[in-house]
Amino acid sequence: MISKLKHNEFARKTLDYFKKANIVLTEDEQNKIEIADFGLDDIENTGLQLITYINTERVCAKELVLFPNQTCPEHRHPDRNGLPGKEETFRCRYGRVYLYVSGDPAANPFCKPPAGSEEYFTVWHEVVLNPGEQYTILPNTLHWFQAGGEGAIVSEFSTKSHDESDIFTDVRIKRIPVIEN
């Protein structure tokens, strides 16, 4: 659960990142920024800020903001109602993002999981994305990602998003944010 005060603080910081990257949001979009704390009460280390532009039956487009060294925890997008899970392409717009997926593990991965959550990070094939670089994650693929030291903005282009169906390796996680008054 995140307090309304902390939510507003993180929304303001998120808007600052969009300004740095020259990404313009409408006033309505600015008011719809989602602050995902994953229910761990450690948003500075495990969290994600995002805006969803569109999410129809066929396509989804989002901007993901990660503050310096902030981590989106390991998860996958499972099949749903007989249809393949979400397929998504990440395109780095600002900063640097380290994406970890299934595959040959990096000998010396750049990132470390947030302290106390190490056991919930199991994939270590490292993909480094700088501005203009992109990577496609296939359905049902375990993945997690972390921003570099200056933070990062990632554009996500995907099939329909069902965030409530994401399966996290860490069973403590609650994907849908709860804001306390």
Rank of each mutant, 00 (worst) to 15 (best):
M1W: 04
S3R: 02
K4I: 05
L5A: 12
K6Q: 11
H7V: 01
K13L: 08
T14R: 00
L15Y: 00
D16S: 12
F18H: 07
F18M: 09
A21D: 08
N22I: 05
D28E: 13
N31C: 05
K32A: 05
I33N: 01
I35R: 00
I35N: 00
A36V: 08
G47R: 13
L48C: 10
Q49V: 06
L50N: 10
T52R: 15
T52F: 11
Y53A: 03
Y53H: 09
N55C: 09
T56H: 13
K62N: 11
E63R: 08
L66F: 15
L66K: 08
P68T: 07
N69M: 15
C72K: 05
P73M: 10
P73Q: 11
N81C: 04
G85Y: 03
G85M: 07
E87M: 14
C92E: 02
C92P: 01
C92Y: 01
G95W: 02
V97S: 03
Y98A: 03
L99A: 04
V101H: 04
G103D: 10
P105V: 14
A106Q: 15
G116D: 03
E119N: 11
F121R: 00
W124D: 00
H125D: 14
E126L: 11
E133W: 12
I137M: 01
G149N: 14
G149Y: 14
E150K: 15
E150L: 15
I153V: 06
V154A: 01
S155Y: 01
T159N: 02
K160F: 07
F168P: 02
D170E: 06
K174C: 09
K174L: 08
P177F: 03
I179R: 03
E180M: 06
E180D: 11
